[in-house]
Amino acid sequence: MVVPRPGAWRWFGVFAFAFLIFTQTLAILTSPPDRDMGDLEKILYVHVPAAWITFLSFFVVLAFSARYLWKGREKDDLLAAAAAEVGATFNGLTLLLGMIWGRPAWGVWWTWDARLTSTLVLFLIFVGYLALREFVDDAQRRAQWSAVVGALGAINVPIVYMSVRWWRTLHQIQSNPNTMDPAYVLGLRANAFAFLFIMIYFIHQRYVIASLQRATEHAAEAVALGGQQE
């Protein structure tokens, strides 16, 4: 097992954080207050990118899980696990930011609309995935099982969304850059890229930690077997 060592990634991390500070400042300073919502629209620059990153990281989990089931390489398993942890973090952030947005905008902290509820269910699926990894000790078993659980969870997300939408249809039409004022679009896109860089940096860091831990376990096994290394 190859253990990655720091190098260019450190500079990528510094760049990602600098870029995030830059885009947030830009968005806060340049965006005009919304006609209806006033300055509240500034919350969108953190809430919407966080939500995008949440869904993107679940796709990353699905992709690496599927590749693990196909090729059986330990690296894919560790990357899927790293993406799941980062995704769960952003997922929690998305939910909390949504509440901070919902309280002044709608008057309630929470409403059972399709997007909110399926984001919450997605969070619970992430939590189940991470709990499974926590409770299984054997490395190969953990990798196989969590790959299957990750893939099934990803299949389920659109079905959950659809069923909750049927169950209760009272939400506003999904906002996307086409229906928004161009003044907001640039800020939203720039912030989405900043969050993307942060996500990539986090996933890589988490992956490095996991592979160091695996390499340590391998080394310990080698010592236990009498110092026979390859």
Binding site: L20, Q24, M37, G38, D39, L40, K42, I43, V46, H47, A50, V86, T89, G92, L93, L96, L97, I100, W101, R103, P104, I198, F202, Q205, R206, I209
Partner: peptide, 23 residues
């Protein structure tokens, strides 16, 4: 409204920096 905006940005940075420290 500004209270909520400030709360949102502080929360975002708390989570991101907290996770960074953990990593």
């Amino acid at each position: 409204n500004w209270t909520f905006v400030i709360a949102a940005y502080s929360l975002t940075w708390a989570v991101i920096l907290g996770y960074l420290v953990r990593l």
